[in-house]
Computed example of a mutant assay.
Amino acid sequence: MARPWLNVLAQVVPVPLGLLLSGALVWGATNADWSGTSSNSGNTWTAASAGLGNDSRKPMFSIEDMRPGDAGSNCARIKSNAEFPTALKLYSNSPNWPNDFQSFVNLRIEMGSGGTFGNCDGFTPHRTAFDGTLDEFVNLHTDFRTGVGPWTLPGKPPNSRSFRFAWKFSPSAPNGAQGETVNEVTFTWEARERE
């Protein structure tokens, strides 16, 4: 005699079994899809530099025992390694002086090409940057905003500008100027990105 529960089982089991097998086939088909990738690695961002240097290894001037009418000069070459155009200016951030001795030192600064520190041979002036007294330069040109210039340094090094500093101790320096000394003077070149 046939068992009725076996008939029910034979009718009910194929449906879940069929669903289970069809799900497995779908999963297998999805898992078998081919794919490909392409990458671009090693990406970095580095800021540019507006580095500036000069070829001096000691002060341009250390003059002793000056007499009225004495004169001299020296050159310096300024180099930029900036990869973008910059504006170059020259100024002095030296402290104010307590006497007027520096007003008897005449100073002429020219911007040009050629020449090196300690040797102005080959220097070709392009423009006079300053012509006055040392006192005027130090008091009037104290930072980038008030500095002389600007001169454009194009991007992509090497870029350079040469400067000739010519001084003369005034023939009209008074007797009271004997033995006087100016305070230490610092000449500063600064380059900023052109706007």
Rank of each mutant, 00 (worst) to 15 (best):
A24L: 15
D33W: 10
L20G: 11
I63K: 10
R67W: 07
S103C: 06
S38T: 07
N74D: 13
I63V: 10
E195T: 15
S80N: 06
E64T: 08
F104D: 10
A48R: 09
N139Y: 04
G122Q: 09
M66G: 05
A87R: 12
F104K: 07
N40F: 14
A10I: 00
T133Y: 01
T30G: 03
S56P: 02
P16Q: 04
K156D: 11
A71R: 03
R3D: 15
T152K: 01
S49Q: 12
P125W: 14
A48T: 08
A166T: 11
V148R: 04
N175S: 13
R192K: 08
E195G: 10
F84S: 07
G122D: 04
G176Y: 15
L17T: 02
K168Q: 15
S56A: 14
G118E: 11
I109W: 01
E110D: 14
T188D: 07
F169E: 05
N54I: 07
P59M: 06
V138Y: 08
V12R: 01
T124G: 05
G114I: 09
N7G: 04
L6M: 08
G114T: 03
D143C: 07
L21Y: 07
D65Y: 09
R192W: 13
G122M: 07
G51F: 06
L9H: 00
S38G: 04
A47G: 13
E64P: 02
K58E: 14
G23D: 04
F165Q: 06
G122V: 03
C120K: 00
L17D: 01
D65T: 12
W27F: 12
R161H: 15
A47M: 08
P125Y: 15
V185E: 10
G51T: 11
A48L: 15
V8L: 12
S62P: 03
V26W: 06
E110P: 03
M111I: 15
R108D: 13
T146C: 06
R194N: 06
D33V: 11
